[in-house]
Design a protein around this nucleic acid. Sequence first.
DNA 1: GTCTATAGATAGATAGAC
DNA 2: GTCTATCTATCTATAGAC
Lengths: 183, 183
Amino acid sequence: MNDRRQIIIEAGLGVLREHGYPGFTQPRVATAAGLRQSHLTYYFPTRVDLLAAVARAAIDGQLDAIDKMFDGASQEVVAASIASVAVRHATTRVMMALAQAADQEASLRDLFRELADGISERVGRLLEDLGIEPTQQARFMLHALSAGLAVIDLAVGRPDGERRAQAVIETALDLLAKGGKRT
Amino acid sequence: MNDRRQIIIEAGLGVLREHGYPGFTQPRVATAAGLRQSHLTYYFPTRVDLLAAVARAAIDGQLDAIDKMFDGASQEVVAASIASVAVRHATTRVMMALAQAADQEASLRDLFRELADGISERVGRLLEDLGIEPTQQARFMLHALSAGLAVIDLAVGRPDGERRAQAVIETALDLLAKGGKRT
DNA sequence: GTCTATAGATAGATAGAC
DNA sequence: GTCTATCTATCTATAGAC
């Protein structure tokens, strides 16, 4: 059943969201999917196979989520949207898991590149909407800034994390809007 | 022997640098330190104990490294220094490990906060040296930007990663220098 | 106090039952 | 094709030897 594969992938995503990469084990995913670990390996023979499938789903989902995020794009709204993603720890755990997986498994690196390129592209469109020139520089900067905010917030877990993140992104967009015409 | 504890901690750091958080196991650290796993648990009874000690060392080492990094602080030199750290994957693995550990082990969260605060403080001094007002905003921005660059470079591993990172940081410093006088 | 043998738990993969 | 019992490897922790 293709359906069951989908259930497993969803379960895997859930595990990644909650426990991150270190907690991503076959038994845990199998339990979450309602089947036995030895059954799971029928659909995904190895851990890396499973991880690749879950990564694929995570990437598609993340890019879709970004697409749906920006409609009425004022600088403030955009900053708030990015900040709200940055402090969603479940998402951060998944993204960090993909980064680590890409670091350790050469076969997954291309998947992560796809994610990074997809984000960069979307950030470019976003900057255009805001009237900021979408140079590679600017796109990369906003991407890295968001990623860093997410990781730091995950680890320090300050109560006002979202507010602070939003303020920083607003400032960055502000600086880009004002100064982006020269460099 | 206190000496032996130190050897173990060094070995743990090495493991973290090479294999990251997922590869941080007692047997591996013990082997790297040249003793048996069951011996290692004499000095560090639990995995978290060991992790806390290694985290402590990693944080001190990282902050020291930052301190030694900036002497003749021109914008370009600073950007190059930060970029060279951002693409040192061993360092990134350690930092990500600390972030994940902080996320999962409440007892380690304070340690990570110490790291984040220490970095923020040093970034502030750095900005001052460059003649940029070291607002909390600006410090946080540069910190997050650097962290994000490091994580992304770890995962995508582009050959020109360092050059790109340096360019982005230079741009950011440039924008802060020009625009930092208003917001 | 220092160190090790060993137990107990969990992970990943395979051969084979249905 | 679908599913499971089972084996092997690995990890963490403890009881106890020296």
